[in-house]
């Protein structure tokens, strides 16, 4: 501001306290990426048939749903909220397109309607949480049951499988000449959009601010409630979109599709370095977290390990990742303690 006295420009500040390689490498995200690289390497060397194009294709087809839903979930969790209704929204979206296709509606319209339902479901979550000031955990446990209930109620225990051949083929097709499924293009576009939104916009800054201190964000003029509502809407919309893919990929619309998916997504997001208390996390870590879970279960399955054991291993990994965060924080606080007793020196 021009009103203050001309400052004595005696002091200069470095942009960063640590050199660039430390800032880039010594992060929780890098730890997960390194772990992913190690697991891929070990699996390629020791598990027969792991390092093959067909394994890669199926791995990516499997994790695509998780990858998509993890993007908005990351932002929701960075604000300190959580969305437990995403698995049910996948089921509801599946039922919506199933019923519309069964009624002879074109696939495009069915998919659009499903995403519309997702937006509506997200809006309901967001409004209940912000207007009634209820915890996201409580509200989305409720809507998890509600959306699942609607889905099962609409379609009963039957399944719709009569999807147009060209659509189901498309959902499983690869990018020509590669072992990479087409759906990864959808994911790449969504990822780019979310990276820009979270890491390069004022909206993203507001998202972090809300998670770090809701009070301070409010005093800084961040539209706290509007931001949270928008994120729940994004979460619902992307979950519905993922539901469309999920349905076409398996060629089956059922009310109980993607049961329990929300926990897998949240586990992967937390594994990727997002704090359950909000304020911390980045998308590259989350992508690595989802891939790590996908690679581990794929490799272990190929190695003949049963699914119970796979669950135990991913569970242990998740607990370790949460503990390692606390240990790091504790270590930092121990290191910081002597310096906080004496005021910061010039």
């Amino acid at each position: 501001m021009s009103q203050t006295r001309p400052a004595e420009r005696s002091r200069t500040y470095a942009d960063h306290a640590r050199p660039w390689w430390q800032r880039v490498l010594l992060t929780p995200e890098m730890a997960i990426i390194a772990l992913l690289a190690i697991v891929v390497l070990v699996a390629s060397l020791t598990v027969r048939n792991f390092a093959t194009p067909i394994t890669l294709t199926f791995l990516l087809l499997d994790v695509a749903t998780l990858l998509l839903i993890a993007l908005p979930m990351t932002m929701v969790m960075i604000t300190g909220d959580i969305d437990l209704s995403v698995g049910s929204m996948v089921g509801l979206s599946s039922v919506v397109i199933g019923m519309m296709v069964q009624a002879g509606q074109p696939m495009g319209l069915a998919a659009t309607t499903a995403v519309g339902v997702g937006i509506l479901g997200g809006l309901v979550n967001g409004l209940l949480i912000t207007r009634l000031q209820l915890p996201a955990l409580a509200v989305t446990i409720g809507s998890m049951a509600l959306y699942r209930g609607i889905a099962v109620g609409l379609l009963g225990t039957t399944a719709v499988t009569a999807f147009p051949e060209e659509w189901t083929t498309l959902a499983r097709a690869n990018i020509p000449g590669t072992p990479i499924p087409l759906v990864m293009i959808v994911f790449a576009v969504a990822l780019a959009a979310f990276v820009v939104l979270l890491h390069f916009t004022t909206f993203g800054r507001g998202t972090y601010a809300i998670g770090r201190s809701r009070d301070a964000a409010l005093f800084n003029g961040v539209a706290v409630d509007r931001t949270r509502i928008i994120l729940f809407v994004l979460s619902g919309a992307i979950a519905a979109l993922a539901g469309v893919y999920y349905t076409l990929r398996f060629g089956s619309a059922r009310g109980d599709n993607a049961m329990g998916l929300e926990l897998q997504v949240i586990a992967a997001v937390v594994l990727g370095g997002v704090s359950v208390f909000g304020g911390r996390g980045a998308l590259h870590g989350v992508v690595a977290g989802v891939l790590l879970i996908g690679v581990l279960s794929s490799a272990l399955r190929l190695a003949g390990v049963t699914s119970d054991v796979i669950n135990i291993i991913t569970g242990v990994l998740l607990v370790l990742s949460v503990i390692s965060g606390s240990i790091l924080t504790w270590a930092r606080s121990v290191r910081a303690r002597p310096s906080s007793a004496t005021p910061a020196q010039a």
Partner: peptide, 11 residues
């Protein structure tokens, strides 16, 4: 600089 904040770096 104007307020002479004593900090090691901006980050």
């Amino acid at each position: 600089q104007r307020l002479e904040v004593k900090t090691a770096a901006l980050d």
